[in-house]
Amino acid sequence: MAIRAAEGTVGGYTVLTHVPQPLSRPFGSAEPVEHEPIEAISVPTTGVAPPGTGFLDGIQRYAVVGRFGLTPVVRGYVAAAVMGRHEQSLSVESQQSEEFIAVNVQRLSDCQARVLEETGLPLYDTGETEREHPILEVHMAAQLVEARREAVELSAARRYLKTRREGWLVLDGSIAPYVDEDDSPRVLGLVKSHETQFLAGSDLRTALTLAARHRTSVFARRIGEQKEVHSWYLRLWPWEGRDLLFGLVRLERSPSAEAGVEASEISSWMLSERSPLSAPDGRWDRLVYPVRQVESYLRAQIGDWL
C-alpha cells in the first residue's frame, strides 16, 4: 500500500458519516518532569496490584420529559459508586445517586415552578440563554447533568477515602476535581479519551506512537492557576494495524518526588489490570475490568430508568 510504502502506518479504519462535534478544549500545556524531551520507557510486566484498591465510576441519564411552551423540562439521574477489591473480589463500598429536574427556571411561571417542586425532586436551574432556543437549553441541561454526576462521584470518593484509610482509589477520568482533597495522593486517574493534547511536536509523536508495554516520561499539567498533576501515557495493547489511540491511556496522580519510579510501578500494575479483559465492551483496550464492573453495577441498579 502507498501509505506503508511511504513509511506511514496503516490500520484503524472507521467509516464515518457525520462531522464530529468540535472539541471543547483540544490543547493543554505541559512541563517536563522526568525527562526532556519525552522518552518512551519500557514497563515490566511483573507488576502486582496493590491490596485494598478502590475503583470509582459514575453514570448519568437524562431525558426531556416535557415542555412549558418551548422550554424543555429535563429529568436527570446520576449515580456513582466505589467498588473495593479484596482478595480478587469486588464489592460496593460507597455509593451515591441523585434524581432531579433541570430546567430554565427563569422561564417558568409560579404555577409551573410549583408543579415541578411538588414532584419531590430537586429542581436545578440550567441558567439563562440569550433567547429561547429549545436545543441549546437541552444542551445546557446536559451540562448540568454532567456537573451533578461529577458531584456525586466526588461525594462517593470522599466517603470511600474517609472509610478506607489506606490504598489507592482508581477513577475513570481526570483527577482534576480531587486535587484539593487531603487524600488526593491516593487517587489515580485513568484517562481513556485524548481530546486534550498536552504534549506537542516530537513529544506528542513519542506519546501517541508508544509501543505496547511502554510509558512516556512523566510530565506535569496545570490545573487552574495554582495546582498541577503529574501525568504520563501508557500503551496497554499493541496498536500496530489498529487506530493510533488503541490501547493508549493517560494516567494522572498528585505530584511526587519519586515521579519516575512511581510511574513505572503504577504502569506495571496497570498492565496487570488488562486481565480480565473488559470485552465485549467496545472500550476494552483502555477500560480496566474493575471500572467496567462499577459501571455495570450502576447500570443494573438503574435498570430501565424512566
Binding site: 511483573t46 496490584a49 480478587q88 469486588l90 496487570s272 486481565s275 480480565p276
Partner: peptide
C-alpha cells in the same frame, strides 16, 4: 501460566 488476574470475574 501467566500472572493471575488481580480481579476475579463476576
Amino acid at each position: 501460566a501467566g500472572t493471575a488476574a488481580p480481579t476475579r470475574r463476576t
